[in-house]
């Protein structure tokens, strides 16, 4: 007993030392924070921009306005999520241990899913821009592929928890594997599937607001442009627009998800 205790203390001390070391390393390498004389000025202009946004930018019949940017952003998120919701299905089945009996296939698919998951969406978008050119299209593809990792993981793990007794009953009626999955497994995972897809949609809306920063479409493009020309009123209205849109989507999607389960 006593030895256990001293071992525990030693381990604690080691952990503390390690954490301290990480912090010393992290902070010692930092450049000093120096406020440029313009910093405060910029901060106050951003706030005043937020308080007195450029309302004329909200709607411009000629096109390049806030509404269009936000709609583009939503459209990218929606299409990306829609594509991902289909792409993730085969991966989900093949990564579920109780559905796919072949361990090698399950392992490969779990690996692919975690690989996609650690891949930042924005890097995917960079690659797609190189492949298909800048624009909303590459943004859609980036979100469509990027979301497969998380959706596949959530859905396959959900599937691993389903009750498989009904599957036996379906096999006994002479159903082939596809029909068996369709009747015995899918009804059990469908509500959660929709819920996960909606949740991912919320994430994708946020992600889509930044795609434009690298040229993959949406509201990010005018924002980065306004920032670079220091048009703070415009920055203000765009930020407001993003905040309102994201909040609304969160609320709506959250309400639907609450009803699903």
């Amino acid at each position: 007993m006593k030895r256990d205790k001293s071992l525990l203390i030693i381990r604690r001390v080691l952990v503390v030392i390690a954490v301290l070391a990480v912090y010393i390393w992290a902070f010692s390498g930092l450049p000093v924070l120096q406020f440029k004389e313009t910093s405060m000025e910029v901060i106050s202009s951003i706030f005043s921009g937020l308080l007195q946004p450029d309302w004329t930018y909200v709607y411009d019949p000629k096109g390049e306005d806030l509404l269009r940017g936000l709609l583009d952003t939503l459209a990218i998120a929606l299409l990306g999520t829609f594509i991902a919701s289909f792409l993730c299905i085969p991966f989900s089945f093949m990564a579920a241990r109780n559905i796919m009996k072949n361990k090698a296939i399950v392992g490969t698919n779990k690996f692919i899913l975690s690989f996609i998951r650690v891949f930042p969406d924005i890097v995917l978008a960079l690659l797609f821009i190189k492949a298909v050119g800048p624009g909303a299209f590459s943004g859609v593809l980036a979100l469509g592929i990027g979301a497969v990792g998380m959706l596949g993981k959530l859905i396959s793990e959900d599937m691993e928890g389903v009750d498989l007794s009904a599957r036996e009953a379906l096999v006994a009626t002479g159903a082939n594997p596809v029909k068996t999955l369709m009747f015995a497994v899918i009804p059990q995972v469908l509500p959660n599937f929709f819920s996960f897809v909606l949740y991912r949609f919320e994430i994708n809306v946020r992600a889509a607001t930044i795609l434009g920063i690298i040229g993959a479409g949406g509201i990010g493009t005018p924002l980065i442009f306004a920032l670079s020309v220091r048009d703070w009123e415009r920055v203000g209205i765009i930020l407001l627009g993003i905040i309102v849109m994201v909040t609304m989507i969160d609320i709506i999607s959250g309400k639907i998800r609450a009803r699903l389960t």
Partner: peptide
């Protein structure tokens, strides 16, 4: 909730405008 609506890259773009280029705005 307000903070949560803004993604990291967007925040970073704003902080770069404030502090200039470098790890500080990133942090």
């Amino acid at each position: 909730n307000l903070i949560r609506t803004l993604p990291e890259l967007l925040l970073a773009a704003i902080f770069v405008a404030i502090f200039g280029i470098g790890p500080i705005p990133g942090i």
